[in-house]
Simulated scan of single mutants.
Amino acid sequence: MEQSNGPIQQPLRAASADPGFIPGLTGAASPFKDAVPRSAVRDAPEETVKDAEPEAQPEAEAEVEAEVEADAEVDAETDAEDVARPAPGDGPSFEAADRRGRIVADAEGVRLSYDEEACEFRWDELAAVESEKGRFGKRFTVTVHTPDRRWYPIEIIAPDRGHIAGWEAELDAVLDAYFDEAS
């Protein structure tokens, strides 16, 4: 029998091995939780089948209606904010793209896409937007920072180094026009 001379190491319990390790992360709810098995429906008389169907819960319906009303109020507030903002074609806009990525910044906000992935940010959702040109070569990086300390970088390869200076000037004009640093 072999004995270990080193310290006893417990197995590592982390999010990579156990998704349940992440606090607040719960499994997906089963859509079949209240379903009646087919065998029970097939073998049971009709009166029993009617009794076995789950009944609608009035409390859950009331909660759903309250959420719908709250969403309608938020949509109404958003519509009022949209009226105050200029139309997308009125002010400055910025767009840079290569074969894989695309950056668009205009009156609506900032949109990033890379291959099949895409994300969109309204101006009020942003904490900072920074741009950086590569020291050598033709790489232009834009990083979007959100208030919850997340950042989303995207790198675009310019056709030539001269495009990067133009892109920086265009992006600065858009940020000056729409981005409110006080928020």
Rank of each mutant, 00 (worst) to 15 (best):
A66M: 07
D106I: 00
R85P: 02
R150F: 08
S16L: 09
S30D: 14
P7C: 11
D160C: 06
V68L: 11
P45K: 09
F179N: 05
Q10R: 15
P7F: 13
I154N: 02
L25V: 13
P19Q: 09
R122G: 01
L112Q: 00
I164A: 03
N5L: 15
A66D: 07
V144A: 00
D34T: 08
A62R: 12
D180R: 14
D115I: 13
E63L: 14
A107K: 00
A127T: 04
G89Q: 07
D160H: 12
L112E: 00
V64L: 12
G20I: 03
R85W: 00
E46Q: 15
A72R: 07
V41D: 06
D79A: 14
V142S: 01
A87I: 08
T141H: 09
I156C: 02
S183P: 01
A118M: 10
E132T: 04
A158K: 02
E61L: 11
S16G: 09
D82I: 07
R13M: 14
G162A: 15
E67C: 02
A52D: 10
V41F: 11
A52L: 15
E168V: 01
H145A: 10
R85V: 01
G137W: 11
G134I: 00
P37V: 01
G134Y: 01
A72S: 07
R135Q: 15
F136S: 11
R38Y: 15
P92F: 01
P31Y: 08
P58S: 07
E77V: 03
R38M: 14
Q9R: 14
L175G: 05
D148R: 04
S39T: 10
I164W: 03
E95Q: 08
A127D: 08
E77F: 00
A80Y: 04
A52C: 02
A35R: 06
P31S: 04
E53H: 14
A15K: 15
R102I: 03
W123Q: 00
G109T: 03
A169M: 12
I8F: 15
D43A: 08
T48W: 07
T141V: 11
V174S: 03
V174H: 02
F21C: 14
